[in-house]
Simulated assay, not measured.
Amino acid sequence: MEVLAAAVTGGLVVALGVAVWLALGRRRDRGLGDPSDLATYATLHTASLAAPFLRAGLDADGARSALPHLRALLGDAPVALTDGAGLLAGTDDAPPAVAEPLVTTVLTHGRTEATDDAVVAPLVVEERVVGTLVVHTDQPSAALTRTTTEVARWISGQLELGELSASRTALMEAELRALRAQISPHFIYNSLGAIASFVRTDPERARSLLLEFADFTRYSFRRHGEFTTLAEELRSIERYLTLEKARFGDRLRVTSTVAPEVLHVTLPFLSVQPLVENAVRHGVEPKDGPGSVRVLAHDAGAFCVIEIEDDGVGSDPDVVREALAGRGRGGSVGLANVDERLRSVYGDDHGLVVETAPDLGTKVSLRIPKFAPGVST
């Protein structure tokens, strides 16, 4: 009986061991996914590797870098990319003559064509055929033709995203140049006048203000990067307000409340500074007696909320609407410029919010996502 009990016990242990092994195996299989899941992952991963080279533009260097990944998407067939002028790059086993008559046809008519030894699909950006994807094969099939067409459409999407990104960058740079041209004459004239007033009476202060002016203009006219951090923007604002307080004296009061956790938030360059200048120039300056400007930045979950408020003369809301629409005449400095750049980067939900009325001051608010695709310093 003892022998039998031992045998039964041993059998149970073995059975449990097998059951645990099978359960772990099934769990491991579920974690890795079935063959279909794995194939989907591999395809997406391969596409993600090719995307950066394609978004950089359709040129020889990008084509050479993207081809190994495109080949993997197309079942390891020899592949090549062309632009409107001819071959950009091909895999080592792609025939030197890149089905030139077929490429010419596709460039002309903008649709996929196939022969006994190649499939050629168009690359289209904004309804323009800019090149082709060529797949060489000795076993043409309808499936390969469809696959080549879909991969070419995906490449076209990446090229279009690249062009949009480049266009957005060029537009933002142009808008920044316009903003600098708009704000600099007024500010430079007033700042130099304030500094000059201290040259004889307080030379040390004049020297200090001149250094602040140099640092401010260096930041405002820098040539690299379309984005900055809130901390850098606030440092520039502090220099600006130091210079303006030298001009206004006790007439200008400034308070600033900034949560430390939002200092590293990235935002478009010169998107807060012009709003502070508006508060001083169009709010406090025309006011009789002293005026105050308040700068607030606080954490709001996934967003950073920034508010610029003054107790100045305020404005008619219709005038502000005209300024935001870019139809203002001699109105707020850069208001439409900042609003348009914020919307172009983050979407229409992230434009400026302006609260104002005559003799009741002005409050301008902006809501910046802490993280946004393509936004980095």
Score class of each variant (00 low, 15 high):
residue 9 T to P: 01
residue 17 G to F: 01
residue 27 R to G: 10
residue 30 R to A: 12
residue 31 G to R: 13
residue 33 G to L: 05
residue 38 L to A: 13
residue 39 A to T: 13
residue 42 A to M: 05
residue 54 L to E: 03
residue 54 L to Y: 02
residue 54 L to A: 01
residue 56 A to E: 14
residue 56 A to S: 13
residue 57 G to M: 12
residue 59 D to G: 14
residue 62 G to M: 09
residue 64 R to Y: 05
residue 71 R to W: 05
residue 74 L to E: 08
residue 75 G to I: 03
residue 82 T to V: 08
residue 91 T to W: 04
residue 96 P to M: 05
residue 104 T to E: 15
residue 105 T to C: 01
residue 119 V to H: 00
residue 121 A to W: 05
residue 124 V to C: 03
residue 128 R to I: 09
residue 129 V to K: 11
residue 130 V to P: 07
residue 131 G to N: 09
residue 133 L to F: 00
residue 133 L to P: 00
residue 141 S to Q: 03
residue 150 E to N: 09
residue 156 S to L: 10
residue 163 E to A: 14
residue 172 M to F: 12
residue 177 R to L: 12
residue 177 R to Y: 04
residue 179 L to Q: 13
residue 185 P to S: 09
residue 194 A to K: 10
residue 196 A to I: 04
residue 202 D to W: 07
residue 221 F to L: 15
residue 223 R to W: 03
residue 231 A to K: 14
residue 235 R to H: 11
residue 240 Y to A: 06
residue 245 K to Y: 03
residue 263 L to P: 03
residue 266 T to P: 02
residue 268 P to S: 10
residue 277 E to W: 06
residue 280 V to S: 03
residue 282 H to Q: 09
residue 284 V to C: 06
residue 286 P to R: 08
residue 289 G to R: 02
residue 297 A to Q: 00
residue 298 H to G: 11
residue 302 A to H: 10
residue 314 G to I: 02
residue 320 V to W: 00
residue 325 A to R: 14
residue 326 G to S: 06
residue 329 R to F: 06
residue 356 T to I: 06
residue 357 A to W: 00
residue 367 R to L: 12
residue 375 V to S: 00
residue 376 S to P: 01
